[in-house]
Deep mutational scan, measured.
Amino acid sequence: RNLTILSLPEDVLFHILKWLSVEDILAVRAVHSQLKDLVDNHASVWACASFQE
């Protein structure tokens, strides 16, 4: 069985995303439609995003 980041529970993905910069979140968003939906549909992803580079 192949395990990917998409195999992780949504709460784990949120925990990972909250540590990323805006640039990295946008890069993750571009990788897969499921990740794009996760980022686009949950404001909590952006609430913790680091807007300082």
Rank of each mutant, 00 (worst) to 15 (best):
D37F: 10
C48L: 14
D40L: 00
S7H: 10
D37Q: 14
A49H: 12
C48M: 10
D37H: 12
K18P: 03
R1M: 08
R29Q: 02
Q34R: 14
P9V: 05
E10V: 06
Q52V: 12
I5G: 02
E10H: 11
A27D: 07
W19G: 10
Q34S: 13
A47D: 13
F51V: 13
W19Y: 15
Q34T: 14
A30V: 12
L8T: 04
I16R: 06
L13V: 11
W46D: 13
V28P: 01
Q34I: 12
I25N: 00
A47L: 10
R29I: 02
D40N: 04
V28M: 14
V12H: 03
V45Q: 14
V31K: 02
H32G: 05
A47S: 12
I5P: 06
K18N: 12
V39I: 13
S44D: 15
V12W: 01
D37I: 15
H32M: 00
A30H: 08
A47K: 11
W19E: 15
V22A: 11
V39S: 07
V22R: 11
L38A: 13
P9F: 05
D40I: 00
S50N: 08
V28L: 15
E53D: 11
A49L: 08
L8C: 00
Q52L: 13
S21T: 12
E23K: 12
A43L: 05
E53H: 01
S50L: 06
F51M: 14
I5R: 01
V31S: 15
E10M: 06
I25W: 08
E10Q: 12
E53N: 10
R29P: 03
A27I: 09
L35C: 04
S33M: 03
L8D: 09
L13Q: 12
H42D: 03
N41Q: 15
L3I: 12
A47F: 15
V28Q: 03
A30R: 14
L38G: 05
L8S: 05
Q34C: 10
A43I: 05
L20R: 01
L8F: 13
H42V: 03
L3P: 09
A43P: 13
L20P: 01
R1V: 07
V45F: 13
V12L: 09
A43Q: 12
D11E: 11
A47V: 06
H15F: 06
F51I: 12
L13N: 07
A27G: 02
I25P: 02
Q52Y: 08
F14N: 11
I16P: 04
S44N: 14
L35H: 01
L17C: 10
I25Y: 00
L3M: 09
I25Q: 05
C48F: 08
T4E: 05
E23V: 08
L20Y: 03
L26H: 08
I25G: 00
N2E: 08
K18Y: 06
E10W: 03
P9H: 00
V39M: 02
A27Y: 01
F14Q: 12
E53I: 06
D24A: 05
E10K: 15
D37R: 15
E23C: 05
W46S: 09
Q34A: 12
A27C: 12
V28I: 11
V31R: 03
V31P: 00
L26C: 10
I5V: 10
